[in-house]
Design a binder for these strands. Structure first.
Lengths: 142, 142
DNA sequence: CCAAAATATCTCGACGTCGAGATAAACTGC
DNA sequence: GCAGTTTATCTCGACGTCGAGATATTTTGG
C-alpha cells in the first residue's frame, strides 16, 4: 500500500535531482530530452519532428512548443526537409551540440552519484523487481 | 544506469493507472488529493487552505487554483474562518463527500490490483530497497 | 492521372504548476 | 497601543502538457 507512495516519491526525488543538473545549464527535462535524442542519433545530429515525437513520446503540439523554444535559444535549427515538403529537419546547432555534450557529462556523473547511494546487493534486487513489474506494463522489448 | 529510467517509467505507469480511476469519476490527481485529504481529516471534513497546502505540498497559487475548480464543481465550500479573518475554512460538501467515498473505494481496490501483479517475495525486497533509498532523500519520519 | 486517405507539422484553448508579488489581518515587542 | 513583522490567501504571468482541429503535402487505389 505505502509502497506505491514510496515508489512515486522516490521517482520524484530522482527527477528533481536530474532537474537540478539541467537547470545548471539553463535546460529543463523537456529541452534536455530533445537535445539528448538528437545527440544520440549520431552525426549529422538531425532528425525530423516525427522521429523526435516517437523517441520522446510526446504529442506533436508539445514537440512544436519544445522546438520553438530551443530554436529561439539557438540550440537547434529547423531546416526544410529536402525530400518531403510537409516536413522539416531539426538539427543541433554548434552551440546546441557543445551544450548537450557538457550536460550529458554532468548528467552521467549525476546518475552514478545517485546509484552510489545504494549497496550493490540492494541495487540488484531492486533492478530485478523493477524489471519484473515493469514487464507487466511494457510486455516486450526485443 | 537503466534502472533509473525503469524506476521512472514504472512510476509513470502506476500514476497513469491511478489517473484512470480518478478520471472515471471526473477527477484528476490534483482534485483527488484535495478531496482525499479533507476526507482523511475526519469530521467535520474541513481544513483551512494552509493545512491543505502543507499536506499536499503544493504552492499557495496551486492550491487556490485547485480550490477554485472544486468549488465551481460544488465538491467543496469555502467558508470564512470564524477565528481568523485572513483565512477561510474549506469543507467537503455532501456531494464532495459522497464522491470521494466512492473514489477512495475504487482507488483502494485499484491499488490492491496493482500490487497483486507482484509476487510477495519480490514485493518485500522491493519494499525494503525503496525504503532504504528513500531514506537518503527523506532522512526521518518520526 | 486523380480523388480519397494518410501523414507531417502547426495552431489554439484548456489545464495544472510554479513563483513572485499583492492584500489584508493578526501577532510582537516595546 | 502601535509600528513593524509575520501569516493566510489570492493574483498574475510564464511554462509545459495535452488533444482536437487546421493546413499542406504525399501516398494510394483504381
Amino acid at each position: 500500500m505505502a509502497m506505491l507512495g514510496r515508489l512515486k516519491r522516490l521517482a520524484d526525488h530522482l527527477s528533481e535531482q536530474h532537474a537540478q543538473v539541467y537547470k545548471a545549464h539553463d535546460l529543463t527535462q523537456a529541452s534536455f530530452d530533445v537535445l539528448a535524442t538528437l545527440r544520440r542519433s549520431g552525426p549529422p545530429y538531425s532528425l525530423n519532428p516525427s522521429a523526435l515525437i516517437a523517441w520522446t513520446m510526446v504529442t506533436s503540439g508539445t514537440m512544436t512548443n519544445r522546438l520553438d523554444r530551443l530554436e529561439a535559444d539557438g540550440l537547434i535549427e529547423r531546416r526544410p526537409d529536402p525530400v518531403d515538403r510537409r516536413g522539416s529537419v531539426v538539427a543541433l546547432t554548434e552551440k546546441g551540440f557543445d551544450l548537450i555534450e557538457r550536460v550529458v557529462t554532468d548528467h552521467v556523473a549525476n546518475q552514478h552519484r545517485m546509484l552510489a547511494d545504494l549497496p550493490p546487493d540492494v541495487r540488484e534486487g531492486l533492478e530485478d523487481a523493477l524489471r519484473l513489474w515493469l514487464s507487466k506494463f511494457e510486455p516486450e522489448q526485443s
